[in-house]
């Protein structure tokens, strides 16, 4: 045990100077990470909403494809799906204009399935009485959905949706394997050149953490806003 401890090369644990010098490069790469995460989450939410509606539809020809899609996406690793998109599709003649596009498409399509389940459960958790009182007040389906159900479901869906968003941010690191120049890819480049893997990956991890802290802060503010009607005057 002591021998093992003695063999640790502490000088390679963390090189603050290298981390500091690499920071501008890594922050540039982090911008790509944030860009991919935001765009992917945006599309994943919109597609997820449609999937949730289809999943709850009375029509089997909407419900079943949505169900199968959600099951497939939740049951397969994102990395495998990115490989199919970026390395598989070109074999049959379909090619993305850039790895970033492939990454965004892959992450959006994959996380839409998770969003669909969160949205579906949030919509279903709004009490039936809300639908009934809106109907008794002559409100139509979409009026009720837009004005009564979605605002209440949003409050319920916020925490799990932000969990998914954090997973999306971290999931962008998988796009590095299809050569997207995001944060992990940048850290790997410098680590490869300097052999200071520990320093670079710890720095990358810290930057991911900071991004997630900022998102968490944003979540708290939104939750406060949506919870304002709970037992308050």
């Amino acid at each position: 045990m002591i021998e093992w401890f003695k063999n640790i090369q502490w000088e390679h644990l963390y090189d603050p100077q290298l981390a500091w010098d690499s920071l501008p490069f890594l922050l540039d790469a982090a911008k790509i990470t944030i860009f991919i995460a935001l765009i992917s989450m945006f599309f994943a939410l919109i597609f997820g909403l449609f999937l949730a509606m289809a999943r709850m539809s009375n029509f089997w020809f909407l419900r079943w494809p949505a169900r199968i899609y959600i099951s497939f996406m939740r049951g397969t690793p994102l990395l495998v799906f990115l490989f199919i998109l970026y390395y598989g599709l070109p074999v049959i003649g379909i090619q993305f204009d850039s790895p970033i596009t492939a990454g965004i498409v892959g992450i959006s399509l994959n996380f839409a399935a998770y969003n669909a389940e969160v949205i579906r459960s949030a919509l279903m958790s709004v009490p039936r009485g809300q639908w009934e009182s809106a109907a008794a007040l002559q409100m139509g389906y979409w009026q009720t959905m837009r004005r009564i159900i979605i605002p209440q479901a949003t409050r319920i869906a916020l925490p799990p949706t932000f969990n998914i968003f954090l997973d999306v941010v971290k999931g962008t690191s998988l796009a590095s394997v299809i050569t997207v120049h995001e944060l992990l890819y940048g850290a790997r480049l410098i680590a490869g050149r300097t052999y200071e893997s520990m320093t670079m990956y710890i720095t990358a991890a810290l930057i991911y953490w900071v991004i997630c802290i900022i998102i968490g802060h944003f979540q708290e503010r939104l939750e406060k806003r949506y919870n304002r009607y709970l037992n308050k005057t």
Binding site: G129, Q130, E132, S133, A134, I148, P151, Q152, R155, L230
Partner: peptide, 11 residues
């Protein structure tokens, strides 16, 4: 219609 459980819109 006035319901037993009120069903006001809580938000």
């Amino acid at each position: 219609m006035v319901f037993q459980g009120f069903h006001l819109f809580p938000h």
